[in-house]
Design a protein around this nucleic acid. Structure first.
Lengths: 130, 130
DNA sequence: TGACATAATGCAAATCTTTGCGTCTGCAAT
DNA sequence: ATTGCAGACGCAAAGATTTGCATTATGTCA
């Protein structure tokens, strides 16, 4: 067994990356951890990711990559706009979304936990091309 | 092969259901189609769903069921609020979201294609219980 | 420290989903 | 009607993810 849990290694993996653009699939995480943990079992990674998502350390979302991607949850929430044609990703400050979430809280009494919204569309450049 | 394509059968499957609450996983769709198409191959279903999503006939989203769910795209867009504790689902009229999408279009020149937002949180009842 | 309870892990099997490739079907142009 | 093409499909294999169960760590309380 390892002295440190897989969770810490996953966090380390994100640590070297800019928060807003580091999006990894479960598989990518598994492969990146392999060199350090040659004997680690895929299910351990999947379970760690599930735990970390549930506890709010990371978030899971569909960025149109075909597989879910995980992202570290930082101090400041942010969101993404993804172009379905060229796959360009734009980062949105939480200021854009917060009013909506506040309104939903007010209206339905919900405490919002979604902390990473991914919205799809077509960017200006791709719209012009058509 | 079949005279009618699998796509039509999938649409039929949604047809009998209230638009806003009929959410099926790929697997559920596969199983529901089996009686009518005993010989159908799973990959055919998966490919049909992928095509239909791409062409905008259905939408795919994560409703916290562990697997992606598909939903028919109706005339009126709507969205959902899901309680992470009791899994209650609340339907949101598009009026709640449209201003945000309009603002994003204005600000980034994006033509939004996301037509079904799923937001997670804790509902009032579950919040009280804690 | 020692024993226990809880959580994390490994392993193997089951499931689910995707992919490559060859075949078949339906539509369109001739 | 015949030909040609593109899209849809089947099949089998590969790949990805989940699950049940046994085992191993870790933290804590006496």
């Amino acid at each position: 067994m390892r002295t440190s849990s897989v969770e810490q290694l996953i966090l380390d993996l994100f640590a070297g990356q800019p928060v807003e653009t580091a999006h990894f699939t479960a598989q990518e995480i598994y492969l990146q951890l392999k060199p350090q943990l040659p004997a680690v079992n895929p299910s351990t990674i999947y379970r760690a990711l599930e735990r970390m998502t549930r506890s709010g350390k990371i978030s899971i979302s569909d960025m149109g990559k075909g597989a879910a991607v995980f992202e570290i949850v930082g101090k400041e929430r942010h969101h993404h706009l993804v172009c379905e044609t060229c796959h360009q990703v734009i980062t949105l400050s939480d200021d854009t979304i917060r009013p909506l979430f506040d309104e939903l809280s007010r209206q339905f009494g919900f405490e919002m936990t979604t902390n990473h919204l991914v919205l799809f569309g077509h960017c200006p450049a791709c719209r012009r091309k058509k």
